[in-house]
Simulated scan of single mutants.
Amino acid sequence: MEVINTSGRRKTSVARIYLTQGEGKITVNKKDLADYFPSEILRTIVNQPLDLTNEAGKYDIKVNVQGGGINGQAEAVRLAISKAICEVNAEHRLVLKPEGLLTRNPKMVERKKPGRRKARRRFQFSKR
């Protein structure tokens, strides 16, 4: 099997992954998965597509992720891994699609508008 390269995005995070045959080692920005994502919940999010398809421990994954916060980065990595697993075996699509793991989450931060303190929040008002 050759190297499979895919990307995933969430909010302002962009994750690029390289999936190869291996023993299940996941490296994120040259750090181990447990070091980069210290929270168990974030590691579960990243491993979700591998667990659903029973592919955990079969592939080495090298991840480059940048932008956004750690939650957005974890979800960007999850999307990229899901897309890569579908490239390896198209039958996994039937498992991942109903879970919503192949859909990019379009929610982004709303921009600040002129005359407002934030996107929708108005400046404080007082009659006096």
Rank of each mutant, 00 (worst) to 15 (best):
93 R>H: 10
61 I>Q: 10
28 V>A: 03
109 V>T: 15
57 G>R: 11
89 N>L: 02
110 E>I: 03
110 E>R: 05
68 G>H: 02
21 Q>P: 06
31 K>L: 14
34 A>R: 12
71 N>G: 14
59 Y>L: 11
20 T>V: 13
45 I>R: 05
27 T>R: 15
76 A>T: 09
94 L>C: 02
81 I>Q: 05
35 D>T: 11
19 L>V: 09
100 G>C: 01
108 M>V: 09
79 L>K: 00
68 G>Q: 07
111 R>M: 04
115 G>V: 08
10 R>Q: 12
24 G>T: 11
18 Y>P: 02
108 M>F: 02
116 R>E: 15
62 K>Q: 13
9 R>C: 06
14 V>R: 13
73 Q>W: 03
46 V>S: 05
19 L>C: 14
64 N>S: 07
77 V>A: 03
81 I>G: 02
30 K>S: 13
59 Y>T: 10
83 K>S: 00
116 R>G: 13
34 A>L: 07
105 N>Q: 06
32 D>R: 12
40 E>P: 07
79 L>T: 00
83 K>R: 12
53 T>D: 11
10 R>D: 02
20 T>F: 04
102 L>V: 01
97 K>C: 01
42 L>G: 04
8 G>Q: 00
29 N>M: 10
113 K>V: 15
114 P>G: 07
108 M>R: 05
7 S>D: 08
52 L>V: 12
100 G>T: 01
41 I>M: 15
27 T>G: 03
13 S>P: 06
78 R>W: 00
82 S>K: 00
16 R>V: 14
114 P>D: 10
91 E>G: 03
26 I>E: 05
20 T>E: 09
96 L>E: 06
85 I>P: 01
72 G>P: 09
16 R>F: 02
75 E>R: 00
63 V>N: 09
14 V>P: 02
94 L>E: 10
105 N>T: 04
75 E>D: 09
15 A>T: 03
9 R>L: 03
36 Y>D: 11
14 V>A: 05
30 K>W: 07
38 P>R: 07
101 L>V: 04
51 D>R: 12
13 S>A: 11
108 M>H: 15
36 Y>G: 07
24 G>N: 15
32 D>G: 14
20 T>Y: 06
63 V>S: 03
16 R>K: 13
80 A>M: 06
22 G>S: 05
109 V>H: 03
61 I>V: 14
42 L>Y: 06
22 G>A: 09
27 T>D: 12
60 D>Q: 15
91 E>N: 12
9 R>I: 04
69 G>L: 12
85 I>H: 01
11 K>P: 14
107 K>P: 03
68 G>K: 09
100 G>E: 00
